[in-house]
């Protein structure tokens, strides 16, 4: 198998005619896309347009029905076993429902970001190294969460939980962050905090960010490149200035008014 480039790479991610079918519906239909290192890309579209499926396909949480994902010339769709898990570690996911382990404390949840780099023995007995613990605490501190490090994850507010999830993603030392509707279950104040954190990661750490967004305003405010999806197809790819009335109509149909 072709060895993957080191962790800090993925200069170019390419989706080639990527499709996924669920029963009768094509959730993603022949997506062609090129993402270059350091971009912050917002993906917009109605519910069920295929945004979430697209991100899950990239992380390989979902298998494509056809098409390929290529990272720096390596065919990601062919990866199996340990190589596949290493790929997932490099493309960190942020979920709408946070997907933290509620019954574990915040610190352990963040340290879960290291699981891919650990031996089976260390996984089994929760043997995290001092360096990993330091990194976890520092990352929590960066998001103002060091104080709650030993609380159970479900004792935190939604906004805090999402920032814990972002800290977990950073512990993966990813090349790319895939955020699936990260602010849809948050109030406006927390939503801003989470989006600011994603932007900061993109600017400071140089990590590529792909973010699914429900609201057009947020996408316009944070992303220099926007991808519009409708019925599984990519119908727009360009800067926010290109989102004209016609384009918005193509993305949202007659529901444009619902997506200010």
């Amino acid at each position: 198998m072709t060895p993957l480039p080191p962790n800090d790479r993925i200069f170019v991610l390419q989706l080639v005619q990527l499709s996924r079918r669920f029963g009768d519906t094509l959730a993603v239909a022949g997506a062609d896309l090129t993402i270059v290192r350091g971009e912050m890309v917002g993906i917009i579209g109605r519910s069920g347009a295929g945004k979430s499926t697209l991100l899950r396909l990239i992380n390989r949480l979902i298998e494509p029905s056809s098409g390929r994902i290529v990272a720096d010339g390596v065919d990601v769709t062919a990866l199996r076993g340990a190589a596949l898990r290493a790929w997932r570690a490099r493309t960190a996911m942020i979920f709408q429902q946070f997907n933290l382990v509620n019954r574990l404390d915040v610190l352990t949840n963040v340290l879960c970001g290291r699981l891919n780099h650990m031996s089976a023995w260390r996984v089994l007995f929760k043997r995290f190294t001092p360096a990993e613990r330091v990194l976890a605490i520092r990352t929590l501190d960066r998001f103002g969460l060091a104080e709650v490090a030993l609380k159970r994850a479900d004792a935190l507010s939604g906004g805090q939980q999402q920032r814990v999830a972002i800290a977990r993603a950073l512990l993966q030392e990813p090349a790319m962050l895939l955020a699936d509707e990260p602010i849809s279950s948050l109030d406006p104040v927390n939503a801003k905090a989470v989006m600011d954190a994603l932007l900061d990661i993109n600017r400071t750490d140089g990590i590529t960010v792909l973010v699914n967004l429900h609201t057009l305003d947020t996408a316009r405010a944070y992303c220099r490149r926007i991808i519009g999806m409708s019925a599984g197809r990519i119908v727009f790819d360009g800067p926010p200035e290109g989102l004209t009335e016609d384009v918005l109509h193509a993305i949202y149909g007659d529901d444009v008014a619902e997506h200010p």
């Binding site: 992380n59 949480l61 997932r88 570690a89 960190a92 997907n99 879960c112 996984v123 977990r168």
Partner: peptide
């Protein structure tokens, strides 16, 4: 969540 971080 654990699958997504590349956990075995």
């Amino acid at each position: 969540g654990i699958v997504s971080v590349g956990g075995s």
